[in-house]
């Protein structure tokens, strides 16, 4: 680990951190990006682990989608994440690609960011100067842009483990392998009402995961059709879609409303 940090400091922007390579090698093959050096962090034992404490799940930087999909702790504590991981890209990308690499690349049409933001997950970064922790929503700053400094590397993703009665949903619409849009929702529902405000995050529509302002929905009756429509409207208003190969802006805005209602339905049904 110390070697990786010192190599990162020595080479700065001349080196890329290399783990699964599923995005990095593609970019290099296409000639989009060029690095004289790759720092392979896969041999570092401590980065390979998934560890849970009573209230925190810590996912090492080289843990793959494949491993998360099969991890018993993830399946039990964060079933929505396990299911999301089982549906990232395709089996070969899942076998090689890592969750940390997915975040580091900050491709807007990626699955994990929306749910991680909704869960309040953090990215743990390390450099020669020490370590710091950023919320995933702070770490991803734009399309293919992150707050990762030239001397830093991701060492882990930390996810606060939700209380037992917290429900979570992740629904997406995709044409090919990447989501055209995704909705992550995390909430506690008791006696048919939200306990506090639900967390609703729209992924793959804007350049960064977009949290929907939901303060007005604290204690809202979840089965009231007006709640569903108002939540859909709040989500449509929160995003700023653009026309691209995944659809026109109007189409995507419409689908955001539809998928927010589906996510709400999934929360009500108690599906994880």
């Amino acid at each position: 680990m110390a070697d990786a940090v010192s190599l990162r400091q020595r080479y700065g922007e001349d080196a890329a951190i290399y783990a699964g390579g599923t995005e990095l090698l593609l970019a290099m093959k296409l000639g989009i990006a060029r690095w004289p050096h790759l720092i392979d962090i896969k041999p570092i034992d401590q980065l390979r682990r998934v560890a849970a404490t009573k209230d925190l799940l810590r996912i090492g930087a080289t843990v793959t989608h494949w491993e998360l999909e099969r991890d018993p702790v993830v399946a039990k504590a964060l079933p929505a994440l396990a299911r999301l991981e089982a549906n990232v890209a395709n089996i070969r990308v899942r076998a090689a690609g890592t969750l940390a690499g997915n975040l580091a690349f900050a491709e807007p049409h990626a699955d994990p960011p929306a749910l991680l933001v909704a869960l309040g997950a953090r990215v743990v970064l390390e450099s020669a100067a020490g370590s710091r922790t950023l919320l995933v929503g702070e770490f991803i700053t734009g399309m293919y842009q992150t707050a990762l400094g030239p001397g830093e590397l991701i060492v882990a993703i930390e996810i606060p483990l939700p209380a037992r009665d917290v429900r979570m949903a992740y629904v997406k619409f995709k044409v090919l392998e990447r989501p055209s849009l995704a909705v992550a929702a995390v909430a506690t529902i008791r006696d048919g009402r939200f306990v506090g405000a639900p967390s609703v995050v729209i992924g793959a529509v804007d350049e960064v995961p977009r949290a929907v302002p939901t303060a007005d929905f604290a204690s809202a009756d979840v089965r009231d059709p007006r709640t569903a429509e108002a939540l859909a409207e709040a989500a449509r208003a929160a995003v700023d879609p653009s026309d691209d190969l995944a659809g026109s802006a109007d189409y995507k805005r419409h689908l955001v409303g539809v998928f927010v209602q589906r996510a709400l339905g999934s929360l009500i049904a108690g599906a994880a």
């Binding site: 599923t22 593609l26 093959k29 494949w66 890209a89 395709n90 089996i91 070969r92 990308v93 076998a95 090689a96 090919l176 392998e177």
Partner: peptide, 18 residues
């Protein structure tokens, strides 16, 4: 050549990779 089609799949320690 972009990990989408699977024609180049081989197994690395039993796991399918492109």
């Amino acid at each position: 050549d972009t990990q989408v089609c699977g024609a180049c799949t081989v197994l690395l320690d039993g796991r399918p990779v492109s």
